[in-house]
Simulated scan of single mutants.
Amino acid sequence: MRERRSIRRFTGDPVAREELAAILEAGRWAPSGLNNQPWRFMVIAREDPRHDKLAECTKYARIVRSSAACVCVLLEKAAMYSEMKDHQGAGACIQNMLLAAHALGLGAVWLGQIVNDQPTTLAALGLSESELELQAVIALGRPDQKGESTRKPLSELMLEDF
């Protein structure tokens, strides 16, 4: 966990189907309220024409274009029971996938800004806005950078001492 970083630059090398399957499996095992598992996944490989369409839906187009694949994480509206809890579950699902990608030696980044225009992004993917809600796109590939990050000390995050 402490070594995982957001990677925004990728080599041109592909990601194996087995690696993608392992990442999706990690997401599938995230906790969800009532075990409803409302998340749905769509993998958009670089060769897929929707990959460029997806890039056009975000100010981070260069990240999407350089990725070997993007994993779109969505919630199926009919499977949801609590908006807050289902969004929390989607976050856990996404974190599981980011950790799995890191464990496989891949680089990945959680793109959140792309969800700001749901109608355009879902249309680019050929999906129904009435049925699905996009939670994030995970751009991934072979890393072409070292990630860096810092964290606030725990004492700054505590509301009271324990």
Rank of each mutant, 00 (worst) to 15 (best):
M1K: 14
R4H: 04
S6W: 12
R8K: 13
F10C: 11
T11Q: 11
G12F: 06
P14K: 11
V15I: 10
R17T: 14
I23V: 15
G27T: 08
G27F: 06
Q37L: 06
Q37S: 07
P38H: 08
W39H: 09
V43Y: 10
I44Q: 07
I44N: 07
R46H: 13
R46C: 09
E47A: 14
E47K: 04
P49M: 00
H51D: 07
D52C: 06
L54K: 02
E56R: 14
K59T: 13
K59F: 08
V64A: 06
S66A: 14
S67I: 06
V71M: 11
C72D: 07
V73K: 04
L74T: 05
A78F: 03
A78I: 01
Y81I: 14
S82V: 06
S82H: 14
E83M: 08
M84C: 13
M84Y: 14
H87L: 12
Q88R: 07
A90F: 01
A92F: 09
I94S: 01
N96D: 09
N96Q: 14
M97E: 06
H102Q: 07
A103I: 08
G105A: 03
A108V: 04
A108L: 05
V109I: 15
L111N: 06
G112N: 04
Q113F: 13
N116P: 00
N116T: 10
Q118K: 01
T120C: 11
T120V: 12
A123Y: 00
L125Y: 02
L125D: 00
G126N: 00
S128I: 01
E129L: 01
Q135P: 04
Q135W: 02
I138L: 15
G141W: 03
R142S: 09
P143K: 07
P143G: 05
P143S: 03
Q145G: 07
G147W: 09
E148R: 15
E148K: 15
S149M: 10
T150M: 02
R151W: 04
L154C: 02
L157F: 00
L157Y: 00
M158S: 08
L159V: 08
D161P: 07
F162I: 02
